[in-house]
């Protein structure tokens, strides 16, 4: 690990100031992605802006027909939240299956969503539920947020403050884990929402994406039969020592079927 300076602001405004003042600064919350990178000397920030002291970024609440989860909320808190379990059980299920106990006790939703690791769990729920990202500057629709591998619409001095999830009629999540890392090899988050059916695929490609053919099929016929014949195109999907793009494309269909079954 290289040396860096450390800041612990107590407000979003102060955190933004610190990030704006130093283009090589990095924000950190749970640290489950950044810390290993620092330890391996793969990242060399001049300073770390620790967000954990910012009270306004914490907590889970229901507002009308939406659940708003503060960016600093740890996975374990989402998994155990009665509010989330009551309104969007698929989201609580997803959170309860991220990594292992240690990861769930430290990792935060804001960190996961803003990092946009293609093999992370949360982006599928954000996209699959059509969530809205609240940042220090603005609100961004999920469809406009995830731009590519480890890339989002947020700017360098912009902080993810909360995620607003509309409560769906039904939703389900299923994933196949990478045998080594236990990150997502292919996952599907399927939701029947007020604005229509949404199918978000994570793990399989370089960035979470919507499976529009399945969405169209399910909109007309919410059943396994509707998507049984839909083949995911392997073009552009990830391929590595754990599985080919063709395997991942196949898994997309399997996981979609399982997510649909979980949604009921």
């Amino acid at each position: 690990m290289y040396d860096f300076s450390y800041h612990k602001p107590s407000s979003v405004a102060d955190a933004v100031k610190l990030l704006a003042a130093d283009p090589d600064a990095k924000a950190i919350s749970g640290g489950h992605t950044l810390l290993p990178a620092l330890k391996h000397r793969l990242n060399k920030p001049t300073s770390l802006v620790d967000l954990s002291g910012i009270a306004e970024m914490k907590g889970i609440k229901r507002e009308g027909n939406a659940i708003i989860i503060g960016a600093l909320t740890r996975h374990v808190e989402v998994a155990n939240s009665d509010v989330v379990k009551g309104a969007i059980p698929a989201l609580a299920y997803l959170a309860s299956h991220i990594g292992d106990n240690q990861v769930r006790n430290r990792g935060t939703i804001g960190g996961s969503v803003s990092n946009n690791d293609p093999a992370a769990d949360y982006p599928s729920a954000v996209l699959g539920l059509g969530a809205t990202i609240h940042t220090s500057k603005r609100k961004i629709a999920a469809d406009d947020f995830f731009l590519g591998m480890f890339t989002t619409a947020m700017e360098a001095d912009e902080i993810l403050v909360a995620v607003e999830f509309p409560i769906p009629e039904k939703a389900g999540y299923a994933k196949m884990k990478n045998p080594a890392s236990r990150y997502v090899m292919a996952g599907a988050f399927i939701a029947k929402t007020a604005s229509g059916v949404r199918v978000a695929i994570n793990g399989a490609g370089p960035c979470v994406f919507r499976q529009t053919a399945m969405e169209a099929a399910l909109a007309g016929n919410w059943s396994a039969a509707a998507i049984a014949g839909i083949k995911q195109d392997a073009d552009g999907l990830n391929s590595d020592i754990h599985g080919s793009a063709e395997y991942r494309a196949h898994l997309v269909g399997v996981m979609a079927k399982r997510a649909l079954a979980a949604a009921g």
């Binding site: 080594a180 890392s181 990150y183 020592i241 754990h242």
Partner: peptide, 11 residues
């Protein structure tokens, strides 16, 4: 070595 860490080597 492609399987050079626990991320890629399945213990």
């Amino acid at each position: 070595l492609l399987s050079g860490s626990m991320m890629d080597y399945t213990m």
